[in-house]
Design a protein around this nucleic acid. Structure first.
Lengths: 251, 251
DNA sequence: AAGTGGTCTAGACCACTCT
DNA sequence: GAGTGGTCTAGACCACTTT
């Protein structure tokens, strides 16, 4: 039987959690191995099962172990992950469009998925998609400013979204979620720099050859496949992608 | 006394959590109010305190309530937050530099903070800073490729980092953390597009007028103030900033 | 069948907050 | 001092996985 009480200040379940974390960190219980069962830990440390379980929950919350009914408690990491997390409360926070923006000059067209779109969407070639080309503009003190030109493809099932584009101030993915019951399970985003060609420069009303921030976003639905893929070109001087990542301890 | 058992499938603590979440969602317990005490919930639902506490923990994990010893359990949200989170396991994942990169042609210089640097760092004008200019290159099949030119400023206290730049493959913020005991509490990142001027293009060995992705990062220490601020210029065709945000339920 | 974690009860004492 | 949440025990039965 082992003894705890290195100060009697902390709760016993926490002392046990620290003790077990140390044994895990030292490799006594290597990653992938099972630690002793709850009953055995009760005997070993002279604690009630409730207390032992509290300690194990702490280790689980810290991402060190994983429990499986009928099997046991398995070590999944030797040290708590000290990850950074970037949290946003809504899609609009990601997109960073001020509330006072809207889409204009939108043109929609039903298209059939070519090889590239079929691959990106994980759908069959020839499947119906809605293509939306639009400018996003913001109202500012000096008048209206073009923030981005966007090309958006959405699954044909949501093509009816086309009839409300003029009144959509939020991200389109959010509208689809609300209107059609789709569920955004994840968003993938790529940011890169590009030089605008003549056509793109004309759309954005900037000089050809100027730089732009290109952002590609894929909105993944409940099945893990994208239901909307959008590409936006932002004039370099009018848009910056910003984010803050906070350190988080544990899992 | 209230009854649960809407199917007997789920554990009672979960049924209670759902019931309470519903009452919170309906405004019966508005945000800011205290819900009944644990003892009272035990009586009301004929459950043991352990079960009631399990239910409350579930609500707490979902971000609906907050407990305070001696006070009670307070409602802090009417519905679980459905936020998106972008998680990275290390700074290097943020920086997205493959392991096989290194700094070359680094030049370091002790500088005094001018007005702008003083503001960015939240330090006094004239405070000592170390400036590092360097190229980051990657080994690829076709030979070495320049990934970025970086200008980095770090607090003078960490100027000794200069003597190990050639051997640093990770992000410099990580090295400072390991060597000096600084703690990265958060990272702020800005991404924008720029057109390279002649000097920058020469450094990166690309054509003048080509586009680049500019990334500004601020590494915040334990006191919430930056200890390192870095600006990187990435040739447009050699670097893309990517991230994936997953929906997370609860707090 | 044996062993594991999951749920649940009944009861106890304590630290904390507020009046 | 009264009420709250925090900790802890002892004991029980169950669902699950593995042998």
């Amino acid at each position: 039987m082992r003894n705890l009480n290195p100060g009697t200040e902390a709760p016993r379940y926490h002392q046990l959690a620290l003790a077990l974390a140390e044994r895990i960190g030292k490799g006594e219980y290597p990653v992938g191995a099972l630690i002793p069962g709850e009953e055995q830990l009760c005997r070993e440390y002279s604690l009630s099962r409730h207390t032992v379980r509290s300690a194990l929950r702490e280790l689980q919350d810290a991402g060190l172990v994983q429990k499986r009914n009928g099997v046991g408690t398995r070590v999944i990491a030797a040290a708590p992950a000290r990850a950074f997390v970037h949290t946003i409360g809504s899609v609009d926070e990601l997109v960073q469009h001020a509330l006072d923006t809207r889409l204009t000059k939108h043109r929609t067209r039903l298209v059939k998925a070519d090889a590239r779109l079929a691959r990106d969407f994980g759908c069959a070639r020839g499947a119906a998609l809605l293509r939306i080309d639009a400018l996003r503009i913001a109202n500012q003190a000096e008048g209206e400013v073009v923030i981005a030109w966007s090309r958006i493809h959405v699954l044909g099932a949501y093509a009816a979204i086309a009839d409300e584009l003029a009144s959509v101030h939020e991200a389109i993915g959010t509208r689809i979620e609300a209107r059609f019951g789709e569920h955004i399970s994840a968003i993938e985003q790529l940011a890169s720099a590009v030089v605008l060609d003549a056509q793109a420069a004309r759309r954005l009303a900037v000089a050809p050859g100027s730089a732009a921030l290109r952002i590609d976003r894929r909105y993944l639905g409940a099945n893990g496949k994208p239901f909307e893929i959008a590409t936006s070109l932002h004039p370099a001087d009018r848009f910056t992608l910003s984010m803050r990542l906070d350190r988080r301890h544990g899992a």
